[in-house]
Write a protein that binds this DNA or RNA. Structure first.
Lengths: 277, 277
DNA sequence: CTAGTCCTCGTACGGTGTACGACGGCTGCT
DNA sequence: AGCAGCCGTCGTACACCGTACGAGGACTAG
């Protein structure tokens, strides 16, 4: 509980392992350590539990000590987001672009399901190192579909958007889950019931919403996810728009090698300027 | 500023206009009025500004008065979300399902852009009256594609998910906007630059991320939205999966009529029980 | 006139993010 | 050796948050 154990989200954002604080650094609080401790907290008790006081306590330091290593709580969230993204980079990218995109999408979705707090941080626009590595990976796949870089970005974003939107809905719906359902571990289909709200029938009846009514009598469940199917449709559309992109990659560019480290370079060993500076 | 003016999001959630407090009700604080005032606050100063104290002050009542009409702050957010959803219901649904779905999607997206706070509330799973009306509208369109209700839901959700994900990314990226850009009012394409973060080049260079590098030298902008294109791909995929669903609706069912009101029925004229009850 | 219900709201408690400044220990210069 | 100055830590204080509790006014029904 007190001592933050190792990975929690992945192998520490793709850095070379076993790497204490930088040689010249006198502090033991690396940005990474902060992020991992915060993630541990969020995993255990939700994003709301990640307060500066709680985090400091879990690290065994004074609250204000954190502010030496981090400008804001926002910056802390950025660190968490970066660490989260590092958790689902692919080790090697499948040759076929369709399976590659599917694989990437599945990984994000799984990560979100394992760390639901991440959706509350996903709004964060920060382009951290892992976000860049992540984009690079996406781009590697997209370049097998088209040579137009703008089109590559459109493809990437459309897939990523669908995943985020879908996962967001799934997780938000998870609140009212049918307790009878087996709810299989982490695969597809966390299917909540149709009537979570009291007064549902009254409203549906009085408003004459025939479609909903028949859905209800048919015993249908709202919020069936079927993530895979939606992704399939989208990929179908993309494929149709880019005929002749099916087989092997036209020009092989090796994936980004996880070369040593530059992860925290911009953020280490310097006093944190106030926001205006 | 103090007195919350009229619509702010739409014609008050589809209710008959000019309708003071219910006859037997002694209070002037309807759920609707609360929601509208909160929305006004959020529009003006962001979701963070919507605190119980601020809201109460803007309504000219004591803070704790709100808790008679609302159990939680969460319930207040539910009311805001419901009101928000009421703002983009279609008045009449185009006959062609593709243009209908496109129209619905565009409306949500516009609403989100006009009320960015709504994305912070979109996680809310509550099935309020307007959410139901909204689903009904969606279902009306989807029933022209397939008769399988489960498939209808899958279609609806995939479209909705894409819109939410896309808008979420767009708005979060809006933070670092290129100030040179004309930024045309509210149409497509709020295109932020590629380098919002300092240290970008250093990371890209040191990590050998060739795709990103070339994207950068090509002057490409990350985060180009192209919402329409992504939606088009998805609809293409859906269309391909359901051949022969193109022309007119097979069996005409009139859209849900905005019959009188039942909006706040379940929530009016009763003390608010504590959460457990 | 009285009992009861509806509605309002002042006070207080425990939480939050963080500005400010004090303080000890280490480094490097003279 | 002495001393200046930075690095890293952190106690205190402030404004703000959501909301539990209960007092009390206004109105209605009997």
């Amino acid at each position: 509980m007190a001592a933050p154990t190792e990975p929690a989200v992945g192998p520490g954002g793709r850095r070379r392992a076993g790497q204490g604080p930088p040689p010249g650094c006198r502090s033991s609080l690396s940005p990474e350590r902060l992020a991992l401790a915060a993630i541990e907290l969020a995993d255990a008790e939700g994003l709301a539990a990640v307060s500066m006081r709680r985090l400091a306590a879990s690290l065994g330091v004074g609250t204000m000590t954190l502010y030496y290593h981090v400008r804001d709580k926002d910056e802390l969230l950025d660190l968490m987001w970066n660490e989260f993204l590092g958790g689902h980079l692919l080790d090697d990218i499948p040759a076929d672009w369709r399976t590659a995109l599917t694989e990437i999408a599945r990984r994000i979705r799984q990560s979100f399901q394992r760390h639901p707090w991440a959706l509350g941080v996903a709004v964060r626009p920060a382009l951290g190192p892992n976000k860049l590595r992540y984009l690079e990976q996406y781009l590697t796949v997209a370049s097998r579909i088209t040579d137009d870089p703008d089109e590559q970005l459109r493809i990437i974003h459309s897939v990523s958007d669908l995943v985020v939107g879908c996962t967001l809905r799934e997780l938000s719906g998870q609140a009212y889950r049918d307790p009878d359902e087996p709810a299989g571990d982490h695969n597809d289909d966390p299917a909540p019931m149709l009537e979570p709200q009291p007064g549902f029938d009254a409203i549906v009846a009085a408003e004459e919403l025939p479609r909903l009514q028949s859905l209800r009598t048919a015993g249908c469940r709202l919020l069936t996810p079927r993530f895979e199917q939606a992704l399939g449709w989208l990929l179908d559309g993309i494929e149709a728009a880019h005929p002749g992109a099916r087989p092997a990659p036209p020009r092989p560019v090796e994936a980004a090698t996880p070369t040593p480290d530059l992860v925290g370079t911009a953020a280490t060993t310097r006093m944190h300027p106030k926001k205006g500076a």
